[in-house]
Write a protein that binds this DNA or RNA. Sequence first.
DNA 1: CCCTGATTCGC
DNA 2: GCGAATCAGG
Length: 84
Amino acid sequence: MNAHWDKPRMEVLTRLWLSGKTARMIAEKLGGGVTRNAVIGKAHRLGLTGKHGSKSAALKRARAFRPKGSDQQRQRVSKTRAYS
DNA sequence: CCCTGATTCGC
DNA sequence: GCGAATCAGG
C-alpha cells in the first residue's frame, strides 16, 4: 500500500471529496489498496473533514471513546501484511 | 438492512 | 503520518 500520499493523490482526494464523492468512491477511484478508512483518515489530516458538500454522516461529529488496548482489544494480525 | 463520514489509537 | 476499528445516524 502507499504509505505516502503523493501530490496527485491528495489532489484527486480533495477534488473528489469536495466534489461530493463519498470516501468509498474516492477509494475505488484511487484503487491500489486504499480503503474508505484510509481516505477518510487522510482527508481528516488535510482538514477536509467537515467540508463535505453532502450531509448525512457530516451532521454528526463527536465519536465514542475507544477502549484503548487494555487487555485484548485489537488482537488482529497487526501489520501481518506478508513480509517478504 | 446497508451505507455514510468522524473520531481515536497503535504502529 | 497512515491505517484500521468503532460509533452513530439516515
